[in-house]
């Protein structure tokens, strides 16, 4: 951390964070249908894990991925219609993923898959407003815009234990995404010398 970041690394961070965000965002649109909203924590990390693994293969230094998490959190907050909690979960999960990557010395494929799984926990920030102390307030706040019918449907899909199921879905999705990403890297990028 003491040495300065190289500009090349920072550019990689910017470019890959943008790619990651766009992939997440496009996948997110499936989530406007009430039932898919519950499955979304599983689907997003699977798709987004593919570019994420390519990003991991470019990371060689502690801190790079944490920066990416900060940027991703900020942009999700701005464009993703979530509460400020999303920034917190993004930063924390990116930091943890960074630690996992470091434990594999930034080259172990297993650690990359594990980091993809850990990083996917940022998804908690997108649905935490449905649970715990935030629940009533959140449901009341969207009755106005979406109507009672939608809210009732949403509430019936999300009892309290769903939180842990959804968090687990994030982890599993991130894992599957990591494995898929590794396959894609091996198939398309290693031979070309790009990963």
């Amino acid at each position: 951390m003491k040495e300065k970041f190289e500009v090349k690394e920072l550019i990689n961070v910017g470019v890959f964070t943008a790619l990651y965000f766009v992939v997440v965002f496009v996948t997110c649109f499936i989530g406007m249908v009430p039932i898919c909203m519950v499955l979304i924590p599983l689907i997003i990390p699977i798709v987004a894990g593919i570019p994420l693994m390519l990003f991991f293969s470019k990371i060689k230094r502690f801190g790079m991925f944490t920066i990416s998490g900060v940027l991703f959190g900020l942009i999700m907050f701005l464009l993703g219609s979530y509460s400020w909690v999303i920034i917190l979960t993004c930063v924390v999960s990116a930091f943890l993923a960074d630690l996992v990557l470091m434990s594999g010395k930034y080259s172990s494929v297993k650690c990359c898959v594990a980091a993809s799984s850990v990083y996917s926990l940022w998804g908690i920030g997108t649905f935490i407003s449905l649970f715990f102390g935030f629940r009533e307030e959140y449901l009341n706040s969207i009755v106005d815009g979406y109507g009672q019918e939608y809210v009732d449907k949403l509430a019936s899909y999300t009892p309290a234990w769903m939180f842990f199921v959804m968090a687990a879905m994030c982890l599993v999705g991130g894992f599957i995404g990591g494995v898929l990403g590794t396959k894609v890297l091996n198939k398309h990028f290693r031979k070309a010398g790009m990963a």
């Binding site: 550019i11 910017g14 470019v15 964070t17 943008a18 790619l19 766009v22 920066i67 942009i75």
Partner: peptide
Amino acid sequence: PYFITIPMSVMFRYFPTL
């Protein structure tokens, strides 16, 4: 700090390119 500014400007520049 520069390590936020540079990735951020790259990121915003990269969205249209994507």
